[in-house]
């Protein structure tokens, strides 16, 4: 019973951080960053530097009228935003975010669920995100929604494959599904050096999995109005929005854990004992996550969007062979005892 309580406390802490800090700050960073890159001013009316803009946005979302299209399938239409949050709010439970430390004679691991099959569970839960898009598209009774959702689900399941292979290559060299072991394994050198190809594939698929530019075909506003969330307004849209940001954070965290050594400042660095070391470790992880999040924003306003056939070609003819090549190379190296 104590373990369950401990896990719940950790879960609540991350959840509060994700929804209370990451989502609003990212709204601000995204809009100010866009302005910076495009040489504009950006939001600067609400509070200093427009810092209170996310708050204003939240109020707007809450007080907007809830509209349900007359022809919509109500169950599916209303289930979709909730389903968008389900994978977002479950996947981060298996990703460690700080070093293990001793507190009051008890070993505390900074991961919600320390599971033997953590990486597999991550892939499984992340795969459930497709259903939100399908429900949204099918339930909205709108051709743009349906097109957007079909595109989205095809894209998600094709890129998931490459992501799975990229993660698999890491697990082969670590010989464990446990993500804490993956970080321990990187004591000698981070995986980004050993598997640059895998890192590249994972990075690209991370963009595709979160439906971000250059892979935001599902909601490409120039052709599909807003894709699968055309018919969603007010809080329902806000849920999709939050789901996207939480997914981005989780994938950034996973990328830091898999390729950038998690909480290690440099390869082989171990945090000092006790709670201070744990806090330093969490902060270092956070720095890596923040860098990755900025990369998401940076890419969004720098690269143009792919065409749909280009997207599919990239997924099946470039990324999948690349990730399989990476897996084969890693397997051979592990077999020879080099990695």
């Amino acid at each position: 019973m104590n373990e369950i309580l401990e896990a719940l406390v950790k879960y609540a802490a991350i959840l509060a951080f994700m929804l209370g800090v990451v989502a609003p700050v990212m709204v601000w960073v995204e809009r100010r960053g866009m302005a910076l890159i495009q040489d504009r001013r950006g939001p600067n009316r609400v509070g200093p530097f427009g810092l209170l803009q996310p708050l204003a946005d939240a109020f707007k979302f809450i007080f907007k009228e809830e509209i349900i299209p007359a022809q919509a399938d109500k169950v599916l239409y209303l289930a979709a935003p909730a389903l968008a949050l389900v994978p977002a709010l479950t996947t981060f439970t298996v990703v460690p975010f700080g070093p293990t430390f001793n507190y009051a004679g008890k070993e505390i691991k900074l991961v919600v669920i320390d599971s033997d099959i953590g990486a597999l569970m991550f892939l499984a839960l992340a795969g459930l995100g497709v259903y939100s898009l399908i429900c949204a598209g099918y339930g909205s009774y709108n051709k743009y929604s349906l097109l957007g959702s079909l595109r989205a689900s095809a894209q998600l399941i094709s890129y998931e494959l490459s992501m799975g292979f990229a993660i698999l290559a890491i697990l082969v060299s670590t010989a464990s599904f446990n993500l804490l072991d993956v970080i321990d394994y990187q004591n000698s050198m981070w995986n980004i050096v050993y598997q640059p190809l895998g890192f590249l594939v994972f990075l690209v698929t991370a963009f595709a999995e979160t439906n971000r530019v250059p892979f935001d075909l599902p909601e490409s506003e120039s052709e599909l109005v807003a894709g699968f969330n055309t018919e969603y307004g007010a809080m329902k849209f806000a849920l999709f929005f939050m789901g996207e940001y939480v997914n981005m954070t989780t994938l950034s965290l996973l990328l830091a854990v898999l390729y950038l050594g998690g909480w290690q400042l440099y390869p082989g660095w171990t945090p000092p004992e006790g709670i201070v070391g744990a806090i330093i470790g969490v902060l270092i992880t956070l720095a890596k996550v923040i860098f990755m999040m900025w990369l998401f924003v940076w890419v969004r306003f720098t690269l143009p969007r792919f065409r749909y056939d280009q997207l599919m070609k990239l997924g099946w003819k470039v990324l999948l062979p690349l990730s399989i090549t990476n897996l084969v190379i890693v397997t051979i190296l592990v077999n020879k005892g080099i990695l």
């Binding site: 099959i117 597999l120 569970m121 499984a124 839960l125 795969g127 459930l128 998931e160």
Partner: peptide, 13 residues
């Protein structure tokens, strides 16, 4: 747990 994860990954996913 392995079967559970595979069930979600393969069947539902």
């Amino acid at each position: 747990p392995l079967i559970a994860a595979l069930q979600i990954l393969l069947y539902t996913g």
